[in-house]
Write a protein that binds this DNA or RNA. Structure first.
Lengths: 227, 227, 227, 227
DNA sequence: AATGAATGAGGGTTCATTCAT
DNA sequence: AATGAATGAACCCTCATTCAT
């Protein structure tokens, strides 16, 4: 059981646990699919009911409004998974004490890629919300900011190790994180944007290859040699 | 002045030229603001009419449907500006024959950053559309793909120059473009996501600083030295 | 003791007797309170179930529809209590043979006031139904008419006694009854309309004083002297 | 032009004036009829639209909610007509200086009867609301109380005149008003409760006869002679 | 060209009622 | 007898779109 399981488990937990009946879970699953496919506003509760093979009334038995369904999907992701993963993650890394920055990068990049790809429907919904609503955008950016701050110290420790050993440029943590994230997203974005209708084609990303390329890039940059 | 004007001019042209009356332009401007602020689906034609200080009937005098307004905003950006800029840009670059890859990067990065920041409302609308609708997403990805292909040859020429001189790693054009774009977006995203309600605070990005950081990153990468 | 018990007993009987389980009685009691407080249409079966501390299914175990609950509350009042009271009452009066019209009035007025106040929740429901629905109104007016007709002969006998002795004006029975009822209602209405949420404050009517005032009015009228 | 015109004019004014279009007035008229016939809660906006020969959307063009329609009907009656009539009325009476209490009573009773009968639909709606909702009941009782207080002084003046001349019992104003109102209502109630579907049969009350009976009652009371 | 009243299809939501456990 | 999850018809309301002026 590697990192990948953890991610999936956390999400599965969020859906499975709770006192949700089978039908309520079907409602959430259908909503996830439809919100992701055609957007929150263009998804009718009728459609949700049909896909979940449930009556419209059942949709409203547990969730008072359509927006509550959205929150039921997003909140566990925002409020639990993101911060928890951040902590788990940095703990795991320190524990392993990866001596080589390349190994560290491989680990981080692969883990993040997997997280995004696994939850790509949710990521799509999240981003749609952010781009659609400046309030949501600000609110989310704040949450992310706080989550990052909460674990920034850990990263500082980790990074300073590699920096002392001359394996990592001495930039502020945030800047290093930013470019790492950007490189990851540049690979993840097409996967996130592409349709999921054929669930079989849901793994169009070669995780190993992508990781290798990103790490290559992050280690050596575009320039083949330092001036 | 210089490049910046070009971008603005092109967009202004797209709005001014046409046979649009003052009121119709007000409609487009109001739609741009509202779609960007609260999303296409959550913007009513009533709201557009009010912000444009126009009757609801007037909105429909020129545009048959609400979606037509969206297209009137996006299409010039997609169909004309992007490809034209790509061409203009590569022509300008070849013409100038920047001998140093760093200079080239500075030029490219600053130009792109400015493009995104200037048109951030439109960018927001575009991304919201993409994340909200898998069809739109696929369609747009295709268009971008084609646009890139159209100018790929030019980039190949430019890049091979720097590559021959040992200033640029010998990766495929697409990969170089991808990471360049990713680094740019990592700086542009917060600006795009932040609200525009206070137009005065609309330039929270230090263009020079951001350009410098990105170029720094793209030239030397995270690693301070090559193994 | 005395008349008051009769009224309450009759109503209590109507609820207790039947083959109603404890829970079913709780349903009726909760319905009475809620229908009276917020109206039949604005009371949900959910609310009834909650106030009765019973599941929604239980509500429907005994009563096929929500309207059946209403009928279960109203019908005993309409079909049994009103006519029976009318009979009991006129019998009691004849039996006692009150020689003075003032004494007769005191007896009648107090009895009626008590009846209305004791059953004010039901009265509220009844009136709401009447004002809300012209069919119900007509139907009820008919029933009341019939009930009155049924005992009109008795009243005629009683009244003619007082009329012969010069204690009562020689108006038709209906007219005498009408004004008596009107005077009673003018005192009972505020009590009926006021809220019952604080059951302790449920007796804001001084029965003795009200009776005295009404009798005073009915005996002497507004004019202090006859022309 | 007698009193009757004044009452009708006031109500007509309330509907006609305002900046209501023909269709909006039709909506109000249809709502008045339907609310009165079958109650507010059992009237659908669909039915209102149909009776008003208007689309459902039109109903909501001027009134944001169904409840707003109710208020648009009731508020002018409560907030303007009632207090205004009270003032107009007492002024008229003082001006005329009716020397005989019987004449005064005739005037008052006829005027009130006419008011209630003319606006019987509204009265029905008002009472339904009161009996259906304890909050509304309390609120309305307060308003009525205030309105009465506002003109109580005038009545005191008028009444004391008759009282000094031995034409009126020396009871508090409120009590005299109460029994007068009760007697009026006892005649008006059947008319209010009866259906209006056949508008031709809308005058089932002989105004002259009813007035005469009530005045008779109020002057001499049930007792043919004072002890 | 512009207006704004009018339309009506369709959406989110409620709630009386049913039924498997 | 009792439960409470499930149902689905119907309701209030919204909003893109039309059209007479």
């Amino acid at each position: 059981m590697g990192k990948s399981n953890t991610v999936e488990d956390l999400f599965a937990q969020a859906l499975d646990s709770s006192e949700l009946s089978t039908k309520q879970k079907a409602v959430l699953q259908a909503s996830l699919t439809l919100f992701s496919r055609q957007g929150f506003d263009r998804t009718t509760t009728q459609e949700i009911a049909e896909l979940a093979q449930v009556s419209q009334g059942t949709v409203y038995k547990r969730f008072a409004t359509k927006h509550d369904i959205l929150e039921a999907l997003i909140e566990p992701f925002i409020d639990e998974i993101i911060p928890r993963l951040a902590v788990d993650f940095s703990e795991t890394v320190s524990a392993r004490h990866l001596p080589d920055f390349g190994d560290y990068l491989s680990f981080v990049v692969r883990d993040r890629l997997e997280l995004v790809v696994t939850n790509r429907k949710l990521v799509r919904i999240l981003f749609a919300g952010i781009f659609n609503n400046q309030h949501e955008a600000t609110a989310l950016l704040d949450k992310v900011s706080q989550a990052v701050e909460g674990v920034e110290a850990r990263f500082t420790v980790i990074f300073s190790h590699y920096q002392r050993e001359g394996q990592l440029v001495k930039w502020p943590v945030r800047q290093i994180v930013r470019y790492t994230a950007a490189a990851i997203i540049s690979h993840a974005l097409p996967v996130v944007l592409m349709g999921d209708d054929d669930e079989a084609a849901a793994q169009p990303l070669n995780l190993d290859l992508a990781t290798e390329q990103i790490v290559d890039f992050l280690r050596h940059g575009l320039s083949p040699a330092t001036a």
